[in-house]
Design a protein around this nucleic acid. Structure first.
Lengths: 237, 237, 237, 237
DNA sequence: CATGAATGAGACTTCATTCAT
DNA sequence: AATGAATGAAGTCTCATTCAT
């Protein structure tokens, strides 16, 4: 999964052809630890020394595999996105009802970020363009990735509008923030207050209210009536 | 309202804390430029040298008015929050209909952040606890401020639920991210893509969709939702 | 007493003729506080800021009366010596038996240094020549003062040897360290261990043992010592 | 004996602590030069720049081996004490008569301090607690070392009192300053006046007078008589 | 390939001292 | 005479990065 990186991979400059099994292992080790360190401390506060020490290797070795701290950081971010995208694209139950797909996306998003994502998220933000991040190239990469990993949801929304499951009076441009915004806000709050939210409860509540807001309005009324009917019937038996 | 902070430095070996008109001007100048620099480059990448140079003064002068880079940064963040809070609390048309008050809050929020806020916002985020930000004290301050500046909205929502203007089946805990989340997301997008959104159009569209989502629905819908909520809760126990 | 500084005063460059009563008061205030600060923190760690703040005056004012920190320090040291010398010379009971005069000197020395002297003593030492102290002039001054304030004792010893009260086989060159050395050591120990010695008890014990060591012994012992000394000297040539 | 200090830095974010032969050489070089600089200029006036320049290396290299100027200084002081203690404990002729052991200690003390000790001594004094020295930890270390290096003498004195060679009416508390005080005074005088005392002559004279003062009184008379007898006999042959 | 060792560049911070008012 | 304000010069320390072995 981490292996087949499409698209964005093509642009990445291949270095030094480190293709031996051992080398590949080193690269992975460094990336793993670097992700830890970067997400814990942020780009500026992370040190190559720290990364090397946690691996028990020399600092110079890190630079054998990555030309610079920045490059390493870019790789870390790319890999992280790759994982998220893979999880999103791979797990989406496309044959299930739209509401369920929506629930999956919300839940997966929250889950992935709650695990380790907040640190990474902050890292990404700190690398946004114009913020002293010296390489604008990274910024572009990030924007591209961002777009790709929101793609499954955007796709879903588009299909929903086409099928009539989702209200058509809202442009996609507005739907995106409407869905991702609350999720992100909840995640930040969890980090800021230092108490991790209950994943299941939060995901459920959020899914519900969001779906209500974006589902076709007739739909909701109809669904609720059906729901009451079902409950009522069940009671009768 | 620009806040009379009771000189947290009183205990420290203060070198000077001048209060003359001229001095006050200097302090304001430094704060102004520092806000620029911090929001452009983030805390770590900002340098006191840069701040001093932009003002055409000596670095030592900066340290005459602020004991450390960190303290300066704290003041910058505090002042920024103070402005936002003042705008929010001061401008809210409390005698107008609820929907209008809501619109004011959304619009003001977007406006203030679009002016300069994104850099500041990133700055605040980068200083959150656990992310390598060394001073936990700042983190607490920020959380407190955050709470204060969301207060007007939370208050409005509470009053709305009481008056029946806003649906009661959503806990405030969920309403907050539902409203602030999309706003924040839109702002980030504006920064990331480097194209500032059209304030008026965006504010209008966002206000509409959000209000629809949180406003009290028609009678039947309302009852059905409440019913569903009840069943759902019963299930969870 | 602080007024009539003889000898050493002549060489001191008079500055700015600040002879008004008010000015003189300022000078004295600054000197008093500067002595405090210098003896508490040492020359390098003392700051003009600290001195000014304790007086509630501006730093610039300090420099109105003293051209530099170093000059101020020199004055502090000089004044301190002047006081000590005055106390030694003024209080010595010249008409009392030699042993009593000796006891007075020992006791006075310990007393003056225990009050505030240790800090000053360290200060003086830190200004010794070649130790980075930039002005060798101070070093000379100090040496001169040192000599003057040990003068009463040296004088006493010389008179004692002449009168037969003090053994003659010890050159003055050796008597000086024999008497001052233990006193200084006791003082340093008091500072290092942070527990001030009991002045009266210490002075008494020290006086006794030192007097025994330097007082003229019985006839036979005296002669034997002299004999031994003679033989020893003869051997050395 | 040069002390295996158990790396007090183990807990800190050590960058490196190389132990190869080459590294060890660097450490020694730095310590050597640092001792020079610190003893010449004192802690505050010594600069890491100076130390690096004298070695012809970069300042950063110094900080590769020592985490801070202070730590370097501590090591310098510790090593110096270690040498002194080793010389004292190692060379003491325990099987020789007490007077000779005493002479050894006095002579060694003077010798070691005359070589380079005065600068170091001033350094140590300037770091004592309360004098602006910021780290109380160092102060404790110094006190401990001080105690260790006076141990051989204190031990000797105790044994002497037990065996009857040394007068019992003086408490050790008084004997210590009585012996060390004069030595220290002589050393300071040598530095202050810039003319180094003649080691052999000074040591001999000092030993004599001190031993007389502390030796059991009867003993001295007896010894002198024996001495005259010996000389007398020798003359007769 | 791995690394021990070294370092250039630069950051923050302190403080004695000056000068116009 | 007093001072508010400003600053030059310097110092300690950090860290990504290079290079010979």
């Amino acid at each position: 999964m981490t292996a087949q990186k499409p698209a964005a991979n093509a642009a990445r400059p291949v270095r030094r052809t480190p293709v031996s099994a051992k080398s590949e292992q080193r690269v992975q080790d460094i990336l793993r630890v670097a992700r830890e360190v970067f997400s814990e401390r942020g780009y500026e506060n992370a040190t190559t020394t720290d990364i090397a020490q946690r691996l028990g290797i020399s600092e110079a070795t890190v630079f054998t595999y990555f030309h610079s701290k920045r490059e390493l950081c870019v790789r870390v971010i790319e890999d992280w996105y790759d994982e998220i995208i893979a999880a999103m694209e791979g797990g989406l139950p496309k044959d299930k009802p739209m509401a369920e797909q929506f629930a999956f996306i919300v839940r997966t998003h929250l889950r992935l970020f709650l695990i380790q994502g907040t640190g990474m998220c902050a890292l990404v933000l700190s690398e946004r363009p114009g913020s002293g991040g010296k390489s604008a190239e990274l910024a572009d990469t990030v924007v591209a990735y961002q777009r790709r990993y929101t793609a499954p949801l955007m796709d879903l929304l588009a299909r929903g509008q086409a099928s009539g499951d989702i209200r058509k009076d809202l442009p996609l441009r507005l739907l995106r923030p409407l869905v991702f915004g609350p999720m992100e806000h909840i995640l930040w709050e969890a980090v800021a207050t230092q108490k991790p939210a209950d994943l299941d409860a939060t995901a459920k509540a959020l899914t519900e209210v969001l779906w209500q807001a974006i589902a076709a309005p007739g739909k909701e009324l109809e669904q609720l009536r059906t729901f009451r009917q079902t409950v009522s019937s069940a009671l009768a038996t």
